[in-house]
């Protein structure tokens, strides 16, 4: 199984390290061509404006096309902003793969960045979550399931083949959320094999 990590900028190394610990062949994706042969893609934390500006050759457009055909994607923090249908205070969104609205830096500035234990539905009762200038989900569309909340705000959600989180599971040694995503990738591979 090959899973890509969007490697324009940000916490790429951390996701690759977890994938390798899970026995998955993780690949850096900087160019459209590098998407071929993958069964899933992780969009890491970083700066969403930078990542979108620097995704050359319609890389994000291609990701959007793959997602609409069932290709599994997982966005953490900036990756969630890139996948969101709407971004507060901004006219355009990017991949628009999941029907949610997100607010940038909703957890505040860096002095308000924090760690906490989260209950993640179907994954863990005690997941160590690191929130860094984190975006929150402010609107949940039809067909979107909220998987985790922090003080009332939705911070993790799934719609079909799209998984998003406000926080950074890649900054901890807890691999349960990555395992959950790999489960989604396996389902996709099985479906593809049947087709």
């Amino acid at each position: 199984m090959r899973v890509g990590v969007l490697a324009v900028q940000g916490a790429v190394r951390e996701h690759l390290s977890i994938l390798s610990q899970l026995g998955i062949d993780g690949r850096r994706v900087k160019k459209v061509g590098e998407l071929s042969g993958l069964s899933g893609l992780i969009l890491p934390g970083g700066e969403s404006t930078t990542i979108s500006l620097l995704s050359r050759g319609h890389l994000l457009t291609k990701v959007g096309e793959l997602v609409s055909k069932g290709f599994p994607v997982f966005g953490t923090c900036a990756g969630m902003i890139l996948l969101a249908g709407e971004i507060e205070g901004q006219e355009d969104a990017y991949v628009q793969a999941i029907d949610i609205t997100v607010a940038r830096n909703a957890s505040g500035r860096q002095v308000d960045s924090f760690e906490t234990m989260l209950c993640v539905k179907g994954v863990a009762d005690d997941f160590p979550a690191v929130f860094i200038r984190a975006p929150y989900i402010t609107r949940i569309g039809n067909g979107v399931t909220v998987l985790a909340k922090h003080e009332g705000a939705a911070v993790m959600a799934r719609q079909g083949n799209v998984l998003v989180a406000s926080f950074h599971p890649e900054l901890t040694s807890d691999m349960r959320i990555h395992r959950y995503f790999i489960g989604m990738v396996k389902e996709y591979e099985e479906k593809e094999a049947v087709l």
């Binding site: 900028q9 916490a11 970083g46 923090c77 900036a78 308000d112 960045s113 760690e115 900054l171």
Partner: peptide
């Protein structure tokens, strides 16, 4: 419990800036 200003939160922001 919510913990602010931990070393992981501090160094974590720098990790997010990598490649930039």
């Amino acid at each position: 419990m919510v913990e602010k200003g931990t070393y992981r939160v501090k160094s974590g922001l720098a990790e997010m800036l990598k490649g930039g």
